[in-house]
């Protein structure tokens, strides 16, 4: 517990935000932590994406599930959350959980022990993952927050979602940097995809049209050491 508080304190320097009044930390590893609720949110794990591609003849290395779980294990060890919410598309397809190697399943179940675990249904995994503990929900309200997979078309204060895999790009003097990012305008937040093989979609894409108040929209870009908060006006497409 003290560990978690210390961690939160150091990170507050860079990744601290408020969403509908609730205090949260955008962790540069791509998870969102709410100290008041001891709640950790992670989105778009896309576990077993590798084997899903392999089924269709693209034999990418079968290590993505292991890599994703290892990173998840690290952040969970750091924050020791009481509640974990996996914000949908936790598995790349409906058969993912069943295909998962026994060793990975054990590791995942190990992470779930002693805490409340919610699987939010996503478009890739609308059903509850086979034979895994945890509660499967369509959406989940906690305090003034609402957790769901896809951002709603109408603006909902306090909504935390994923699905779109946001990334942001800035250009200066003919050079450019592109990173995954959290996207938030103070009212709602869209989380970056966490999975090892997940791609990303630029925040300026039409898919995000109308979701945010432009004046206050910020991209919290994931750096190797810290989060970089970049205002909407500095972002570039591509």
């Amino acid at each position: 517990m003290t560990v978690a508080l210390a961690m939160a304190a150091t990170l507050a320097d860079t990744g601290a935000v408020r969403i509908a009044g609730e205090r949260a930390i955008c962790d540069r590893r791509g998870v969102l932590y709410f100290p008041e609720f001891r709640l950790l949110a992670v989105s778009d794990l896309h576990l077993e994406k590798g084997s899903s591609l392999a089924r269709r003849g693209t034999l990418v290395p079968p290590y993505d599930t292991g890599a994703t779980l290892l990173r998840l294990q690290t952040v969970i060890a750091d924050y020791q959350p009481a509640i974990v919410i996996s914000l949908g598309d936790s598995f790349h397809d409906g058969g993912g959980a069943a295909r998962m190697h026994a060793s990975f399943r054990e590791r995942l179940e190990g992470l779930m022990v002693g805490r409340d675990w919610f699987w939010v249904a996503g478009n890739h995994d609308p059903e509850a993952p086979a034979d895994l503990p945890g509660d499967t929900v369509r959406e989940l309200a906690i305090g003034s927050l609402l957790f769901r997979h896809e951002p709603s078309a109408v603006r909902v204060e306090g909504e935390i979602s994923g699905h779109l895999h946001p990334c942001a790009r800035i250009v200066q003097q003919g050079r450019s940097v592109r990173r995954r990012c959290f996207a938030g305008d103070g009212g709602r937040m869209i989380m970056p995809a966490f999975g090892a093989y997940t791609g990303s979609l630029n925040l300026l894409d039409r898919a995000y049209a109308g979701l945010f108040r432009r004046e206050t929209l910020m991209a919290y870009m994931l750096g190797t050491e810290r989060i970089f908060a970049i205002s909407h006006s500095m972002l570039r497409p591509g």
Partner: peptide
């Protein structure tokens, strides 16, 4: 330009501006 080498100093500059 040193093409491609993603450079966080760029991000740092932008973030500082903000």
């Amino acid at each position: 330009p040193v093409h491609g080498e993603a450079d966080e100093t760029l991000l740092m500059d932008a973030a500082t501006l903000v």
